[in-house]
Amino acid sequence: MADDLAEMRVKVATACRILARQGLIDGILGHVSVRVGRDRLLVRCRGSDERGLLFTTPDEIRLLDFDGEGDLGEYTAPNELPLHVETLRARPEVMAVVHAHPPAVVAAGLAGVELRPIVGAFNIPATRLAAEGLPMYPRSVLIRRRDLAEEMVAVMGGHAVCLLRGHGLTAVGQTVEQAVLRAINVDELARLSLETVRCGGTLQDIPPEDLAELPDLGPGFNDRFLWRFHEERLRHEGLGLETQPTTTKG
């Protein structure tokens, strides 16, 4: 169990670094969590020597229960812990939650630019997410209370991503990799949508017959290969993490 937790701490810390490297998280705002058992989670917390999400360490990933109690030590749980807890509580199939602040997603929401399935083979996962629907939670608030988190979860329903107006997004997955890459794909779709509008273009859904031709390439292609790319790029830039960190108390 201790080895499993150590490995998962590295993965969540790596997820934070990837999101920051991709521009979905700036500075110290945003967090990633993963379910541990029935009612606990590992979540990115903040300590006195906070350096930002791009430099997240495994020690900053703490094990808490759904009431926010656990091995915090010198760290503080994120204010928006209820966002993670209530999502995991309401959706037992979800194993990982990402909360990020992608500027393109925020700008698209404020400008009234709806994220639609406008591209095809260029980014199949993004197109599929848009075709399935990207609901918008309309309140621009810090989701730091259970009632606010329950509101967001209700808006999100069974979707993989919920946009948060004037705030960012929440993405979920059956793995950390899946949740992170879903957030990245929605960010890419937002960037393309904004650039199209900026160039004077009109956003148009791809035809249904083209959408039907887009295959689901599976988790190996959609998640594992892309995750490995992002991990290797972190290593190339001197930001990679060891797969076996120093043992941290569970």
Rank of each mutant, 00 (worst) to 15 (best):
P125L: 11
V32D: 01
N79V: 02
A190H: 02
G47N: 01
E231A: 04
D59C: 13
G238W: 07
L41M: 10
N123C: 15
P78Q: 04
H99W: 02
V12Y: 00
E237Q: 14
Y137H: 14
E150L: 13
L217N: 08
L24A: 03
R233E: 12
D210K: 05
E80L: 01
I25F: 00
R35Q: 05
L19M: 06
R235M: 08
C162K: 07
L110I: 09
D67F: 08
E232K: 06
D223K: 06
R44V: 10
P117T: 13
D26Q: 05
L42C: 07
R128F: 12
V36L: 09
E242P: 13
L64S: 00
E188H: 03
Q22V: 10
V197Y: 09
D216M: 03
L83I: 15
H84Y: 04
A15R: 04
R228E: 13
D59G: 03
M136T: 14
A121C: 13
R139V: 15
A107L: 11
C162F: 02
E60N: 02
T247R: 13
V97Q: 11
V12C: 03
L189R: 12
V155I: 11
T170Y: 02
R17H: 01
P82L: 14
E237C: 09
D4L: 11
A90E: 15
R62I: 10
L203P: 09
L241Q: 07
R62S: 12
L226D: 05
R165A: 15
D71F: 06
E213Y: 00
H99M: 08
D216G: 04
V186L: 05
V161D: 05
P58M: 08
E151V: 04
A6E: 08
G166K: 02
E114L: 13
L134Q: 04
G73M: 10
D39G: 06
H101E: 01
T243E: 14
D3S: 12
H159A: 15
P117I: 08
E237T: 06
H101D: 00
E60S: 02
E60Q: 10
G73Q: 06
A20V: 04
L88A: 13
D59Q: 11
R40P: 04
A90D: 14
E93F: 09
L163P: 05
G201I: 02
L19D: 02
R182M: 05
H159G: 15
L110D: 10
K11L: 14
D39R: 14
E231S: 10
R17P: 02
A90P: 05
R91P: 03
G238L: 08
K11C: 05
R224H: 15
F221A: 14
E177P: 09
A126D: 04
R89F: 11
D147I: 14
P215M: 00
G37S: 03
F229G: 10
L189W: 00
L29H: 00
E114D: 14
E60F: 01
F229W: 12
L64V: 07
G218H: 02
E195Q: 13
G200Q: 01
C16E: 08
